[in-house]
Simulated scan of single mutants.
Amino acid sequence: MHYLTTTDLAGEDVLSGRNGALGVILLNRPRVLNSLSLAMVQAIDAALDRFEPDPAVAAVLMTGEGERGLCAGGDIRTFYESGKAGDGRAADFLRAEYRMNARIAAFPKPYVVFMEGITMGGGVGVSSHGSHRVVTGTTKLAMPETGIGFFPDIGATWLLAKAPGELGTLMGLTGEAVAAADAIEAGFADWFVPAEALGTLAERLTALGTGAGAAEVSALIGEFATPAPGGEFAENRALIDRCFGFDTVEEIEAALAAETSPFATKVHSAMLAKSPTSLKVTLALLRAARRSPDLETCLEREFAATAQILHTPDFYEGIRAAIIDKDRNPKWSPASLDAIGPDIVAPFFRPHPKPLFG
């Protein structure tokens, strides 16, 4: 939501400008839940180019216009069309987006983000890599890619692998949305601030001294933060770690099937609805991420995997069911876990001929 009453923000689908000591980036495509396009990624990068060397900017604030969410992710209809056409637009977008994700994670100034409403896929990329991540009572955070025949990307394999215990494995495989408390529990956010306090918090951020750093920003947010209500992860942590600690999807599925709690039943049902190929690729990526030294290594691996996803039937079927025909009834191929062997998973791990970094 647009909290700051300033006329200094300029742009179209991304508005940016300086308000006091705060560099503001506002995603401004509310009709499509601020879904990211290549032009939007480039505009975010350009704003960071201006804010990083500017001594008058103490911190950056990322937020989204509209009542429904910060960002629902990348524009997957464009992915679908580009993959069908083989025109390379999907790869161009992902290359720019992933490099932006790495930049956000390494940004030298405090990067504050208000993760209101739907914060999914690419929305997690522009938020959870930041240094000061604020969730509210409306937050619905997810990496839902296994439901469209894809896998968690935007550096999410790094974030999910770093989550405590097996929380990240659950989030990555099921793709289910979590609210504020669980987003914090899993390490995707830092503070819960009631939505009605965000406007005042934003105004206070504009009044930071130009020499303010991470500690000052943390202290200021802390003045507005309260305990996040509810949450399922903490109370179900032993079950989650017990069921999701295996290195094969079949073992995880069997462990969940043996549980009798409503939470286990819900999670089990959610996972079974996802693309079997995506489940196996995702688990392999998450386990590889655990052995990885940094975010860039994971982004590089994810980017290489996207080259294979464009040749995978489930990707097109998942997007067809979700946004083209909207029947919410994808027909996965192969349709069962036991039909997916190493020969199907291995191509996702081939190095990309044009790496992101280096």
Rank of each mutant, 00 (worst) to 15 (best):
T119L: 07
L70F: 13
S127G: 04
A339N: 06
L22R: 08
E302F: 02
A72H: 04
L208Y: 02
F150C: 07
A96Q: 12
L159N: 02
L159R: 15
T200V: 14
D247N: 11
I154R: 08
I344E: 04
A195H: 11
I344A: 04
L26Y: 01
G130N: 10
L295F: 05
G211K: 10
S292G: 02
G175W: 04
D8F: 08
A346F: 04
G20M: 11
A21Q: 07
K266D: 11
F51L: 09
T312G: 01
G125I: 05
I309P: 00
C71N: 00
T7W: 07
S127I: 03
I44F: 04
R18G: 04
N329C: 15
F107V: 01
V134A: 09
G245P: 08
F348S: 05
A289Y: 00
F357P: 05
A304N: 09
R18I: 10
L279N: 06
G245L: 11
A105D: 11
A321R: 02
G123V: 11
A207Q: 15
I240L: 01
V134Q: 04
R328Y: 15
E216M: 03
G213L: 06
S275L: 02
T210E: 14
A105L: 06
G318L: 09
A156C: 08
R350C: 07
A58W: 06
R290S: 02
G149W: 09
L22P: 00
A214S: 12
F79V: 12
P110A: 13
N329K: 14
G168H: 04
I323H: 13
T306C: 13
A339E: 15
V267T: 08
E317V: 12
A254E: 14
Q42K: 13
F107L: 06
D190A: 02
P353G: 12
L201D: 01
L299V: 06
E203D: 14
E232D: 15
F244V: 06
G64Y: 02
V126Y: 04
D92P: 02
A305P: 03
E97P: 00
R242I: 09
G172D: 06
R204G: 09
D314P: 07
E67T: 12
M120H: 02
V24K: 07
R237M: 04
I25F: 14
R29M: 01
F188E: 03
T136P: 13
G149T: 10
R103M: 08
A234V: 12
E12F: 09
L141S: 10
F93V: 01
F224M: 03
L286W: 01
E300R: 03
L337T: 04
V178T: 11
I323W: 09
L299Q: 09
E116F: 00
L141V: 05
E176F: 10
A234M: 00
G74I: 04
V267E: 15
L310F: 11
